[in-house]
Design a protein around this nucleic acid. Structure first.
Lengths: 212, 212
DNA sequence: TTATTAATTATACAAATGTAAAATAACTTG
DNA sequence: CAAGTTATTTTACATTTGTATAATTAATAA
């Protein structure tokens, strides 16, 4: 090799944010495909295409990276809901239906997606930071669903008070979370489309219960 | 020490079934309190009060032990339901209420209990034996709930067909599973008693929907 | 008591883990 | 082009992991 030949760079430097993002996405990918057990620092960094030592340059450690990836995934889900609400073209019923579609009949429903969440819950068990994050995210989603149901009640001219909305929200979120979990674990008994139909039936029951 | 003195035995031998049971319960205890990550062979055997080497004498390995513990826990839950059904003293509505109590307002609801299930789901992701076990257990519970709803429909003289029961079962199991999961993860928004009330309200809606 | 059996322990080991520290090299600035 | 900065790699290391094997020892039977 002569001096005039340009060598290929062994690696390229990345913007800090881009590198952090890439590591978080690699973490999600590993948790999804390999499971929590096999998601090691080396596996994550291999997926991200960097050497293992780099992790500590951007995160306090593996735990910090996983917690950050959780935050990232949670925000992603939250954003997809918020986009729906912001759309003024849709009526309250359609927004709810679209929400059900996202939750129960999209890429959010899969054994792989469950893998990531299960890993997070597992860590949450002994990690206070993760507990707090879950609590706050849960609270946000709960507020959104309560708002969606309130809009729906107004749309259908229902006779409901705050307490009714609160309990209906608990019931609806319980239903969607449960259907999501069961679909992820084993979709042999019913599919996402049927799950959406079941939620719409629930919504209809909700309407009947409070219409007068 | 003279020959006439009796030495304390360093350990005592146990019946094979008893030892297996003890190891499975130690596994559940570790998964619950330590989380999946810290549930090592050494931790399990310490909890069971035996040396680490013994595990391989009763199980093919750690994976086999965990899968067996899962089977054991599943059966335990299944049995507690079956006891309810067998009780002829109770009417269909009361049996359902008691089922909700077990699922949502008992020792089955805790961060610790979730720890065990989360560990199982995590393994299930990459373990076919666990997947099969979950599928079969799920199928059994689904049959039980379908039967409970059928009894209830007869009891209340409802006008339902098999398809109605099937979808109502999916909805009810989704609801209970979701409420259970949310309660285990974070019980700040509502408690087990309220969850039971919500399920009873659902049952009432079910009755209204099909009564004529 | 003595011999036999096998449940249990003790020891060892290779592989994998998370992370610290030093070495390298890509980029920036002058 | 030269020097400085720091993102990235390389290497190393102490722990922990699951498991295999050999050494004990409790229980059983003769």
């Amino acid at each position: 090799m002569t001096d005039t030949e340009k060598r290929e760079p062994k690696f390229s430097r990345l913007d800090a944010d881009a590198r952090r993002l890439s590591l978080m996405e690699a973490t999600l990918h590993c948790l999804s495909t390999l499971g929590q057990r096999a998601t090691s620092v080396r596996a994550i960094c291999a997926q991200a295409g960097v050497s293992p030592g780099l992790l500590r340059h951007y995160f306090d450690g593996k735990e910090d990276l996983v917690a950050s990836a959780y935050e990232y995934l949670t925000k992603k889900l939250y954003d997809s809901f918020h986009d729906l609400i912001g759309n003024d073209e849709l009526d309250a019923e359609q927004v709810l239906k679209d929400s059900f579609e996202i939750l129960l009949n999209s890429e959010w429903v899969s054994k792989e997606m469950l893998g990531a969440w299960v890993a997070f819950w597992s860590i949450q068990q002994t990690d206070e930071r993760m507990q707090k994050q879950h609590h706050e995210a849960n609270h946000e989603v709960r507020k959104i669903f309560a708002q969606l149901l309130t809009n729906y009640a107004t749309f259908k001219n229902l006779n409901v008070n705050d307490q009714d909305i609160k309990f209906a929200t608990i019931e609806l979120m319980g239903l969607t979370d449960g259907l999501w979990l069961e679909l992820c674990l084993d979709s042999d008994f019913y599919n996402g489309e049927q799950a959406v139909t079941i939620c719409m039936n629930w919504l209809n029951s909700f309407k009947e219960r409070f219409s007068h």
